[in-house]
């Protein structure tokens, strides 16, 4: 699920950036630092959308670096249990398959794949129904439901299922 929230961060800026463009430099550095990171608390920071407020800088003793407390708005993505996501399959093996929904990695183990789909090994391992009409392989797009998340301080990993109504392949690259 996506959220638009305000976060705060202490930015350290090298004295060489001081000048007319200090604010721009600060913002671009913030984006570089923050976007794409993941915190267990808020999820993945997708994009910084604006700056709320930049506080007074504080010169650090000895280094000349200046610390600015920056409040910024950003879009975060946080997967939840029970959430339905669309994801791209990145790897298939006999244990199941891995998929990515943006920054989130999702693992679907083979017993959460419908019983009528069977693993086919080969150079393009895949899961296929007995009549061959549905195939899950690398780069397939699947709709899945998250049934478990593992949230660490800097990492979120999910396990999903496609063993439910309206879940499964939504766009097969082989047929396109």
């Amino acid at each position: 699920m996506f959220f638009h929230i305000v976060l705060e961060r202490n930015m350290q800026l090298h004295p060489r950036y001081f000048g007319r463009n200090l604010r721009d430099n600060l913002v671009s550095k913030l984006m570089k630092d923050v976007e794409g990171t993941c915190s267990g608390r808020h999820g993945f920071v997708v994009a910084v959308t604006g700056i709320e407020n930049i506080g007074k800088g504080l010169i650090r003793d000895g280094t000349g670096f200046v610390t600015f407390p920056v409040k910024y708005q950003c879009v975060v993505f946080r997967p939840f249990k029970g959430e339905i996501l669309e994801a791209v399959v990145t790897m298939v093996n006999k244990m199941g398959f891995f998929a990515e929904a943006g920054p989130v990695q999702i693992f679907v183990s083979n017993h959460l794949i419908p019983d009528d789909m069977e693993f086919q090994s080969g150079d393009m391992p895949n899961y296929t129904t007995s009549d061959g009409s549905v195939k899950i392989q690398k780069d397939s797009e699947v709709r899945l439901k998250i049934i478990g998340t593992r949230v660490d301080a800097t990492e979120i990993f999910c396990i999903g299922t496609i063993k439910d109504d309206f879940l499964g392949v939504i766009n097969d690259p082989a047929t396109v």
């Binding site: 891995f98 183990s109 959460l112 090994s121 049934i147 478990g148 990993f157």
Partner: peptide, 30 residues
């Protein structure tokens, strides 16, 4: 839902949430 895996050698147990760390790129096993 949480599939469990067990190492036959050392008896260590994992579950599906550890899958990312267990996957190896040489073969398709955990």
């Amino acid at each position: 839902t949480l599939q469990e895996y067990i190492c036959p050698n050392c008896g260590k147990r994992y579950n599906a949430l550890d899958a990312l760390r267990l996957v190896s790129f040489e073969d398709e096993d955990f």
